[in-house]
Design a protein around this nucleic acid. Structure first.
Length: 435
RNA sequence: GCGAUCGUAGCUCAGUUGGUUAGAGCGCCGGUUUGUGGUACCGGAGGUCGCGGGUUCGAACCCCGUCGAUCGCCCCA
């Protein structure tokens, strides 16, 4: 412990089943986003600090105390990205992606936030992210949410529900906000300490409070529905009827607000149902996917008004809910003789090229390798020998045969493409000759 | 930023009110046995008990600090 450097607090080294789960989430995301025709984008991991400060909101916790910011050698303030949306918006403006509008974009990678680590929360964490930029139509919201829903379902995650709300357009949101401030200010002294502070910084957040003292006042607080313009209401109705048509289950969450300044209209989170297995696995960091419409963001970065919707989901959180099928080694080669290793290398190459997963130890083969291969979950071993003048004789031996896929036919086919093969079904041996 | 719990072999942990050379299982290495090479047994290596300081004749154990982990608050994915 003394001299070996430790990993930075809040970062993690992921290996084994956790790493497989992580990869499964990313692979599923990549597969589904292609079905929905979202285009892959890559952006820098760091940006000028102002990119985030101007778009996320100066007063948010993310900007005011959670950013990893530093000066580069030129004295410029840079920041490790705490989220994707701001960087994507910047890229959209600086590269003139308006020409492609409306664009459906997808990306994934690491994000950085200086927070106290806990379950499902890390200082370097990872998200999958999807955005539709340049579309003001509610159909874009539907498209985006339909993909989110399908990804979660294809990950095999149950007991998670889409919570949906509208914050209205800019005017609706401001009027509602003002009414909420008025409502809560009247009872300020009876609110929790946290909510008294929220009243100044982020009054919408009071609606989310877990403190019992706030509940009563939240219950009779002004509702967004009373402040929606006809247009905003029509927009929300179009989103919900679109979701119904797409077969996406959702529930109205009147008090769901998103923390960041740029959200308008649609706001949503996928949250595990109370008491579900998923809720138990996640602990208190329960939102696995969140997002909304951010029609005001581009202007904050000096661009023309540009409508957009997006979401992000925590890969670590999704990975906690996922149980990917473990892919085991199909064939483990266990040559007795050192001199058989090279022929095995040649065979393995041929088999792998035909899609059979194979492995062989690097070191001098030991009788214990057979035991190890079985414990590691490999399906079959290949015993190797040489009877006479053939290239090699291999014999299939079952290890974990119960769940193993059929391989004999594929093995024979792959070998015959390159060698002359004589199969003995009784002994399960293949005598392999050069052609 | 606030609070709670916890740091003993590579991993999971035990260690009795403070008392000699700190233990187990798994894993690792070696050997014997077994044999359609999948078993069983024997042995071995490996820890300055997170780090620093204090109390004591004596600290893994008590006290303080520090670093880290875990969980919760805040906030968020």
């Amino acid at each position: 412990m003394s001299k070996t450097p430790q990993a930075i607090r809040g970062t993690q080294d992921i290996f084994g089943p956790d790493a497989e789960a992580f990869a499964f989430v990313v692979e599923t995301f990549e597969r589904v986003r292609k079905l929905y025709r979202f285009r892959r984008v890559e952006m820098p991991v760091f940006e000028k600090t102002e990119v985030f400060a101007r778009s996320i909101g100066e007063t948010t916790d993310i900007v005011s105390k959670e950013m990893y910011s530093f000066e580069d050698r030129g004295g410029e303030s840079l920041t490790l990205r705490p989220e994707f949306t701001a960087g994507i918006a910047r890229a959209y403006l600086s590269n003139g992606w308006q020409q492609h509008a409306p664009v459906k974009l997808a990306t994934h990678g690491p994000l950085f936030r200086y927070e106290r680590p806990q379950k499902g929360r890390y200082r370097q964490f990872h998200q999958i992210d999807a955005e539709i930029i340049g579309a003001a139509e509610p159909q874009a919201d539907v498209e985006l949410l339909a993909m989110a829903d399908q990804i979660i379902r294809e990950l095999g995650i149950d007991g998670v529900t889409l919570h949906l709300n509208t914050l209205g357009d800019g005017d609706s949101r401001e009027a509602w906000r003002a009414a909420l401030v008025e409502h809560f200010r009247a009872v300020k002294d009876e609110l929790s300490e946290d909510s008294q502070e929220r009243l100044e910084k982020n009054p919408l957040r009071i609606l989310d409070s877990k403190d019992r003292r706030d509940m009563a006042f939240v219950a009779d607080a002004p509702k967004i529905d009373d402040f929606l313009t006809d247009e905003a209401r029509g927009f929300f109705d179009a989103v919900t009827s679109g979701l119904d048509a797409a077969g996406v289950k959702w529930t109205r969450a009147e008090s769901l607000v998103r923390g960041l300044d740029y959200y308008r209209h649609t706001a949503f989170e996928f949250i595990p149902d109370e008491g579900s297995e998923a809720a138990g696995k996640l602990g208190s960091q329960s939102t696995i996917l969140g997002g909304g419409r951010y029609d005001g963001l581009m202007e904050g970065l000096g661009g023309a008004p540009t409508p957009a919707v997006g979401w992000a989901a925590g890969i670590e959180r999704l990975a906690m809910l996922v149980e990917p099928a473990i892919e085991q080694t199909e064939l483990v080669f266990l040559p007795d003789e050192e001199s058989d290793k090279l022929p095995c290398v040649q065979l393995i190459r041929v088999l792998r090229e035909s899609g059979i997963s194979c492995d062989m130890a690097f070191r001098k083969p030991s009788r214990k390798d057979y035991d190890k291969a079985k414990k590691a979950g490999s399906y079959r071993a290949i015993a190797v020998g040489k009877i006479a003048d053939e290239f090699l004789t291999i014999r299939i031996r079952d290890l974990n045969i119960d769940s193993a896929p059929k391989v004999r036919g594929r093995l024979r086919e792959a070998l015959e493409a390159r060698f002359h093969v004589v199969e003995n079904k009784a002994t399960r041996e293949f005598r392999i000759f050069n052609r």
